[in-house]
Computed example of a mutant assay.
Amino acid sequence: MWSNDSRSLPDWIMEAYEILESGTESPQNGISREEAQRLLRAEEEFPADQADTEYAIEQLLDNGWLYEVEGELRITDPEL
């Protein structure tokens, strides 16, 4: 479930969410994990290490900021 409360997630993981959110056309459009990792590694200020990108994606999934459908990551729509 999506929550406005990001206290349990570090700022750099919330930054990953913002990067992924801006990298998708709409919450209904999904991207592959590989594309999500590419978007994160392309950002200069985001840790470029693959383990960091994988960890950030997993944390966003585990905390409801992202969800996965048929192998694609989607942004949780805060308006729902």
Rank of each mutant, 00 (worst) to 15 (best):
R33T: 10
R41M: 11
D49L: 03
I31Y: 01
N29V: 07
G30N: 10
E35C: 06
T53S: 13
Q50T: 15
L40V: 12
R33S: 05
L40A: 03
E35P: 01
L40K: 00
E54C: 10
A51L: 13
L61Q: 12
E35D: 08
A36K: 00
N29P: 00
E34K: 03
Q37K: 14
L60S: 05
Q59N: 05
E44F: 07
E43K: 13
Q50A: 15
A48I: 03
L39H: 01
A42K: 13
D52W: 05
P47T: 12
E58C: 09
A51M: 05
D62I: 07
E54Y: 07
A48S: 09
L60M: 01
Y55F: 06
E45T: 12
G30H: 07
A36H: 03
R33W: 10
E58Y: 13
E35V: 06
N29M: 11
Q59D: 01
R41L: 12
E43D: 15
R38N: 10
E35G: 11
A51Y: 07
G30E: 11
A42E: 15
N29D: 12
Q59S: 10
R38D: 12
P47H: 09
E35M: 04
T53A: 08
E35F: 03
P47K: 08
I31R: 03
L40M: 10
I57Q: 01
G30I: 07
Q37T: 10
G30R: 02
I31E: 03
A48E: 08
D52P: 08
Q59G: 04
I57S: 00
E35A: 09
Y55P: 00
R33V: 03
D49E: 11
D62L: 14
Q37I: 13
Q50G: 11
Q50E: 15
Q59P: 14
D49I: 08
L39I: 06
Y55T: 02
D62E: 14
Y55W: 01
I57T: 01
A42C: 14
E44Y: 04
E44A: 06
L61G: 01
P47W: 09
L39C: 03
D49N: 15
L60R: 03
L40E: 00
R41I: 13
A51K: 12
D52R: 07
I57P: 00
A36C: 08
S32F: 00
T53F: 01
Q59T: 02
D62N: 14
A51E: 09
D62T: 12
Q37W: 01
G30S: 11
Q59C: 09
E34D: 02
R33M: 06
A42G: 15
F46P: 05
R33I: 08
L40Y: 00
P47Q: 04
D62W: 11
R38Q: 13
E35L: 05
L60N: 04
A36T: 07
E34M: 04
Y55I: 00
A48T: 05
E44H: 08
E45W: 08
